[in-house]
Simulated assay, not measured.
Amino acid sequence: MEKNTAHLIEDCRSGKRTSQLALYKQYAQWLYVVCLRITGNQEEAEEAMQDSFLKIFSRLDQYHNDQCFEAWMHRIAIHTAIDYVRKQKPEWEEIPDNYAEPEPDGPDEEQIRYSVALVKEGMKKLAAGYRVILSLYLFEGYDMEEIASILNIQPPSVRSQYLRAKRKLLEIIGVN
């Protein structure tokens, strides 16, 4: 970890507001983007980011210097953003144990060429449940089992929701 960040963390632990502001300025935009990918809404992302910082500052005593500070904050921001999505009550579809995963029938992902802006707009149009699963899997790097644990649903449901979300996103952005 950078010495400046380590110094800011220690000052924040002792309650120095200027250090809290400096830490906020250093990481606010990054955590906002993380929250925005999960919530899909600018206002909720901003609130989730603000709440994340409140949690970060109040839990600094739980952070250990041998951990990666950015990863620790990232996890707090993701869980906070998911809490905001849960308030929206997305509909998670439980899939029975004997459910057979559908065969991928869409275009080959490597052949698809589209702009980042188009995908961002398409993500905003997805239902909250789909958006959360796609964001956690594609952008945040969680695997299906981790997502199932975070969202308290079964891994087959996560896989099914992911495939449906991917198809819906491809439909929205017009890839045939």
Rank of each mutant, 00 (worst) to 15 (best):
K125M: 09
L136Q: 09
E101P: 14
N152M: 08
I95V: 15
S115F: 09
L118Y: 09
G141H: 04
E146M: 03
Y142D: 09
A148S: 13
E94W: 09
G174P: 07
L136R: 04
L136M: 15
Y137Q: 05
E171R: 02
I133Q: 01
K166L: 12
R159E: 14
I95G: 06
V175A: 02
A117F: 12
I133M: 02
Q88A: 07
A100K: 14
Y162F: 15
A165N: 00
Y137L: 04
S115I: 01
K168D: 07
W92H: 04
R113G: 08
R167Y: 10
Y84C: 07
Q111Y: 08
E93S: 08
A127D: 15
P90E: 03
I150W: 13
E110W: 09
K125S: 05
N176P: 15
L136W: 08
D105Y: 10
V132T: 00
E109R: 08
D143N: 14
L151P: 00
A117Q: 15
I150R: 08
P104M: 03
S157V: 01
I150S: 06
N176R: 13
W92G: 00
L170A: 14
E110G: 05
P104A: 01
P107L: 07
P90M: 03
Y142R: 10
M144A: 11
G174E: 11
P156I: 01
L138E: 08
L134K: 00
N176K: 14
Q161M: 10
I112F: 03
S149I: 09
S115Q: 12
R113E: 14
P104L: 04
R167Q: 13
E109M: 10
R167M: 05
Y142T: 01
A128I: 02
L134S: 04
L136F: 10
L151W: 02
K120M: 08
K168Y: 05
I172L: 12
L170T: 08
P107N: 05
S135K: 00
A165P: 00
V175I: 01
K168G: 03
I112L: 07
P155M: 03
P107A: 05
R159Q: 12
Q111L: 14
A127S: 13
D108H: 12
R113Y: 10
P104Q: 06
G106Q: 12
P90F: 02
K89D: 13
K124Q: 11
E121M: 10
A148Q: 13
E140F: 00
L134E: 08
I95N: 08
R113K: 15
G129N: 07
L169F: 12
E145G: 05
R113W: 09
I150P: 06
P102V: 01
Y84V: 01
P96S: 07
P102E: 11
L170S: 12
K124F: 03
Y114L: 13
I150K: 07
L134A: 05
L151T: 00
